[in-house]
Each structure stands twice: as structure tokens, then as C-alpha cells.
């Protein structure tokens, strides 16, 4: 039975897929749906699995598409509002203002983080990155993920999130500043 296959995938890779989906979608129910849709699609495409990639890589590849579909769906349904209803737009703008003095200079001296290889174990760095991603608004985190982690093309990002290029640039600038500040406060440098 192909579903036996899926049961094995679920045991071996279920948590990895779920964590990945949860980090991007930030909602346990949506993450569960994405994992479910991924496994269904994988079952249907099983004959096409070449076997030269690992199963996990293959499943993650399918999951990415499912996550982007969900992003698109959300962008269509509610182009600007955030799921939790907080006024992130204002909050983000205020946070960025706080980084600079009135004359446009940095408020505080930036620290030297050195070489990523030598700073901390990658696991520690990772938990920092995750914590900081969670402190961003869902939309900013999504943008940061798509551009700086997945390296998605800017035009694709604009389409998927139903945003103009200028809005994307503004939000990415804010996201990167917010990530920078969070990492610095969490003990880098």
C-alpha cells in the first residue's frame, strides 16, 4: 500500500517537515495541512521520484511549493492585514526610526560580529536566528525567508505576496535591520 510508504515518511521525516512548515506559516493547523498536502502530492508523484536525491530533500522541495501556495492564497485573501491583527506596519516603522538619530546616523555603534565559522556552534546560531525570525511580523519574516534564505527572485516575491517592488524593498530593509538588531542584542558581537 502506498500509504504504508507515507506512514514511514511521516515517522522518519514528519517532524522535520512540520518544523519547517511551522517556521514559515507560524500556525500549527496550517503547518499540519501543508505536511499533509506534501505527502499526498508525494504519493501521487512517487513514480517520478528519481531516487538520486534523498527522500527528505525531495519532500522538503514539495513542501516549499505548498508553503508558497499558502503564501499566495493568503496574499490574495488579505493583501495587507496580518493574521493576528496587530498593527505591525506602524510597529516596524517605529522600530526602524529608533535605530537612527534625527540626523540619520546610527544611534549606537554597531559591533563587529567576526567570522560566522568561529562565533558559536552552528546550533546556537540557529536557535538565535529562529528566535529573531519569530520576533519579526509574519510578513517581514516571510519576505526575509523568501529572499535571504530561499533566494527567490524579487519579481517572483512581488507576485507571490502581491506587493509592489518598492514595498518589498522597504520591508526587506526593515526586516534586515530588525534581524540585525535582534541578533546583536541576543549576544552576537
Amino acid at each position: 500500500m502506498p500509504t504504508d510508504e507515507a506512514q514511514r515518511w511521516l515517522e522518519e521525516h514528519g517532524s522535520a517537515l512540520y518544523s519547517f512548515a511551522l517556521l514559515h506559516l507560524r500556525d500549527p493547523d496550517r503547518a499540519e495541512d501543508a505536511v499533509q498536502e506534501t505527502l499526498l502530492a508525494a504519493l501521487q508523484a512517487l513514480q517520478r521520484f528519481a531516487g538520486n536525491a534523498s527522500i527528505r530533500t525531495w519532500l522538503l522541495g514539495i513542501l516549499k511549493h505548498k508553503i508558497v501556495d499558502e503564501f499566495r492564497r493568503q496574499a490574495r485573501e488579505a493583501p495587507v492585514s496580518e493574521p493576528d491583527g496587530r498593527n505591525w506596519e506602524t510597529l516596524e516603522a517605529t522600530r526602524i526610526e529608533a535605530e537612527f538619530a534625527e540626523n540619520g546616523r546610527w544611534h549606537h555603534a554597531l559591533t563587529d560580529w567576526g567570522d560566522p565559522e568561529q562565533v558559536a556552534s552552528s546550533h546556537e546560531l540557529w536557535s538565535l536566528v529562529e528566535q529573531c525570525l519569530e520576533s519579526l511580523s509574519p510578513r517581514m519574516a516571510r519576505l526575509f525567508m523568501l529572499r535571504d534564505v530561499w533566494e527567490a527572485d524579487t519579481t517572483v516575491v512581488c507576485e507571490e505576496l502581491a506587493m509592489t517592488p518598492t514595498n518589498v524593498w522597504t520591508s526587506l530593509h526593515r526586516a534586515r535591520l530588525a534581524m540585525r538588531r535582534c541578533l546583536e542584542r541576543s549576544g552576537l558581537g
Binding site: S15, S19, L110, G114
Partner: peptide, 25 residues
Amino acid sequence: RQLEFMRGIVRSGMRHGQLPIEKPL
């Protein structure tokens, strides 16, 4: 340099499949 650092860690993390830290299903 900080931006480069940030992009470096997230990308190398993705390549090695470290992201995210696993939460059990």
C-alpha cells in the same frame, strides 16, 4: 559585514538542512 554574516549563516544552515531546529510533530 553584519548583513553578509547573517546571509552566510542562514544560507549555510539551509544547505546543511539545519533549519529549522526540530519541533516534534
